[in-house]
Each structure stands twice: as C-alpha cells, then as structure tokens.
Nucleic acid binder design. Structure first.
Length: 177
DNA sequence: CCCTGATTCGC
DNA sequence: GCGAATCAGG
C-alpha cells in the first residue's frame, strides 16, 4: 500500500457499483471509498454507464446544461481556519454506544476510513459526533466526517445509530449471507 | 443553507 | 480516463 489508493482499482469500481446500485448517493460513496470526491465518483459512474440509476423516465437531462465550465482561472481556494466558535457539543449518544459494540462484529459493508478523527476543538457543527474511545480520557475523539444535515452523525454512523426497521431487516439478511 | 446528480472540458 | 468546476434542481 504505497500509494494512497487514488486510482480506480477493480475492487474500488466494484464497490462503487455496489454502493451506487444500493442507492447510496455519490457523496456517500465517495466518503466510504475515501480519498475521492463526489465529483470523481459521479464522473466514474457516468463513464461506467451507470448513470440514471433509478429514475429515468423524463428526458429532462436532455436540456443543455453546464457549458461555461471553464474552471477557475485562478482560484487558490483560501481555506479559512474555522474557529471552533460555538460548537454545539454533542450529548454523548446513549443508544449508539450499545449498537457500536454490536456493529463491530457485523459491521455493514466497508470499514470506516476514519481518516479524520477530530478532537472537541476541531469539531464543527456539521461534523459527525460519533464518540470514539473513552470520553473521560484526553484521547477521546470524534468521527469528524461530514454529518448529515439535521443529524449529529455522518451517513455511516447515522445508519448505525438510527437503524430503521426496514434497514435492519436488510442488514440482517446481508449479515447472514 | 444543505444537498442531489449531470455535464463539460482541461488535464 | 480522470476529476474539478459548474450547472440546475430539490
């Protein structure tokens, strides 16, 4: 594993197909894959000819779209050092913890990249607040991934935390297989 | 505001 | 082939 794994290997493409067919959005897939943006995922999906996943009755996509995509002539993308300001502290989830241990065994599909765990200081409003480790210890971290709007967790952890009945059934089915 | 996929085009 | 930029819409 010398390289960061940025290229589309067969395994990654397969996972992409699986997740895409599973109904996950491009950003979710990108997050799970790691080291790729949703644009990359979408681009690959289109190249693979997987576009139009579910709905494909309307020809609305036939309309002329982007054409001024001349890319920014010089946009250095200034990254603003977000101050932690008023970070909405997350009440340590109660239920999820129980599930977490359980999930360790029959985890959904892919292992969480967890490339960016953050401390309370770096935690932002729209960051996943999935607790990792002992909250009483200084090594305590949060997932830190992009959280779903309205939810305190990222997509992956949200699934673990709030598993709907329907989803559970599906997961059990997969787990048994 | 957040997000979604779709498309174009420079690399 | 790849993906950032951009668009158009929800």
């Amino acid at each position: 594993m010398t390289d960061a794994g940025a290229s589309w290997t067969d395994e990654r493409v397969e996972l992409l197909k699986k997740l895409w067919a599973d109904g996950l959005s491009a950003s979710q897939i990108a997050a799970e894959l790691g080291n790729v943006t949703r644009n990359a995922v979408i681009g690959k999906v289109h190249r693979l000819g997987l576009s139009g996943r579910a709905k494909d009755a309307k020809a609305t996509s036939a309309a002329p779209r982007a054409r001024k995509a001349t890319r920014a002539p010089s946009a250095p993308a200034p990254i603003a050092p977000q101050p932690h300001s008023n970070v909405v502290l997350a009440p340590i989830p109660l239920q999820p913890v129980r599930e977490a241990s359980e999930v360790s065994a029959d985890d959904d599909d892919v292992a969480i990249p967890m490339s960016e765990r953050v401390t309370i200081m770096d935690l932002r409003e729209s960051m996943c607040r999935w607790p990792m480790g002992d909250p009483t210890k200084p090594e305590f971290r949060f997932c830190g991934a992009r959280s779903i709007t309205g939810l305190p967790y990222c997509t992956h952890h949200a699934r673990i935390a709030y598993q709907p009945v329907a989803d559970r059934k599906r997961e059990r089915k997969l787990a048994r297989a």
